[in-house]
Write a protein that binds this DNA or RNA. Sequence first.
DNA 1: CGAAATAATGGTATCGTTCCCATCGTAGTG
DNA 2: CACTACGATGGGAACGATACCATTATTTCG
Lengths: 349, 349
Amino acid sequence: MNLAPPAHSRRATLKQVAQEACASKTSVSRYFGGAREQLSLDLQKRIARAASRLNYRPNLMARSLKGGRTGLIGMLVADIRNPFSVAVMHGIEQAAREQGFSLMICNTDNDSRLEQAHIAQLISYGIEGLVVNASGRVSQELAELASTGLPMVLLDRQLPGVEADMVGLDNDATIDMAIAHLIETGYRDILYLSEPVNHASSRQERLSRLTYQLTAQESTINGKTFMLSMSAGLTSLVPVVEQFISTASRPAILCGNGNMTLMAARCLKQLKLNTGSIGLLGIDELEWCSLLTPGITTLAQPTEEIGRRAFACLLERNREAYVGQSRHIRYHPTLIKRGSTSCPDPHAI
Amino acid sequence: MNLAPPAHSRRATLKQVAQEACASKTSVSRYFGGAREQLSLDLQKRIARAASRLNYRPNLMARSLKGGRTGLIGMLVADIRNPFSVAVMHGIEQAAREQGFSLMICNTDNDSRLEQAHIAQLISYGIEGLVVNASGRVSQELAELASTGLPMVLLDRQLPGVEADMVGLDNDATIDMAIAHLIETGYRDILYLSEPVNHASSRQERLSRLTYQLTAQESTINGKTFMLSMSAGLTSLVPVVEQFISTASRPAILCGNGNMTLMAARCLKQLKLNTGSIGLLGIDELEWCSLLTPGITTLAQPTEEIGRRAFACLLERNREAYVGQSRHIRYHPTLIKRGSTSCPDPHAI
DNA sequence: CGAAATAATGGTATCGTTCCCATCGTAGTG
DNA sequence: CACTACGATGGGAACGATACCATTATTTCG
């Protein structure tokens, strides 16, 4: 492969700085490598001057080639336009920066072929850790990757038998909180909306906890579940909701994630249904939830914290060649009460 | 700096593959470098087998060290949680991937110190191009960077005297479309909401076109402008809007970007004002704009296209050591009509 | 049939760093 | 004073890849 040199002018190298400063490469390397104190003040000054004259920046590629450390961590994002992912990303990025790491973000657009390609690329760049926010099934590739000892954290997903940490929501507690709130505010019929479970463990967990609760509390409430794929769109949801409310006396819709909340809101709007008389409770907080005319009640995840924690996990594994059990860290959501769960009796409207 | 080796097991190297395949490093390099066809079929097979046995991936760091090309392009984002930025990012990423480039995304959180740090880092990684979506003033650092010949594209900003392309909205046309639409739907008093102009050229352009139009059409409409900083929050906006509607007969609020649309919507909700009787028109489309009870009319930017085009500019400059004039590429927005601009007469409610 | 072109392969310098080891002067110690 | 210790500096071999040039075997052609 004939790689043409880059069009823009070449950067100054350490060697040039050394020459300019009448010093050795070693000394300049020490200066920039954090061993500044073992150089005489005079030498330091000379190097500083030469470097700024040449506008020198160390070449991290070369550095990591020799040192083995790249200072890079990768993140695989299923859908970069998902506010939840972005918020977590923000947390990771902050934490990473504080420790001198940079984040390489790869958007897989829910495409596992792309995921493969990006993984290969991230490896090629020598990332020191990987945060994965996959959509569905986590690919075989990832399992192998984890087995090489690369520190890895899964967001909201588990991979049985894989040595990787997991950071996410306490799904059982979340579902319990949701149901408790709905019951408390007077709703009795629950339609649970989720994206297709595929092999996403968190969706699986939420769903099974929900069905568990539905049977455990069947004297109080009864419920239904519907798996809605985003590609299917509104048209497949509308009849389901119509049918649901026609048979329910005190109906509420519980949304398994932000996408579902959006779909549900669109659906209610299209059907001209009065949100509130039809309850609406979403998992994940979105900026517009407070804006709709009865605000939408949500269970907000501590997104930034999840991100920071995910990075912290990577760091620990990286530092101490961590070989402990893979950890599962689960956060509780915060209930944000709004108008969408405040009108228990539809006949009151 | 004593860089400890990474905790996870070292990857196989080209040399090892060569040994395993009884071939020379050169041949292996050819195999992975895209000169596969000049190897005999037998040799190819041996290398393929050896590589997969060792699970070999080329080290891109080493490759770029020698070749001078890193395949990396950088993006500086003012606020990663801004949907507009994310959408553009998505466009860039797609285009970049198609050409075999990876994107390093750096979030500056509107902090120019952070911006500096990230620039230094991006340079250190040897990026071959940079897309900048800065918030306010574009730092001196950037100007210098551009002068080194690094291909650079500014989103929605201009830097006078700097050799960098610019991709963004045609602000004059946008303002014209906005005003024409407001007039056509019957509004006569316009409150223009913008984030502080600082040195952001697009805000500057929108504002000055607006004031130009206000005077040009002063027989038809009259208007007011208000600069609202996000940190000031709702409290500083509410009295302004109250005062505005008290003196206006056919009032409409025109929002300079998505943040402002959010603030305006919040404000109208808090004041319990009927959106529609108070017109609302936002620049930038957001997913919830269709959800509010009268939908919010917006002027949507072709975000993905902007991103793709930005990358294309980088590529051109990179390829042909482009030295032409810096280009300014301006897109027209699309008007999405909704309920928020459909009720010209407040007394009709 | 011999020279020249072509195809297939290998050897090695090099990219910009870090790091080990060597060097050298100066001071401290018995 | 000789000997060690130490502090400051430099030389050069890696790191993992590419690319130039050289080598050998095979074909082509006058």
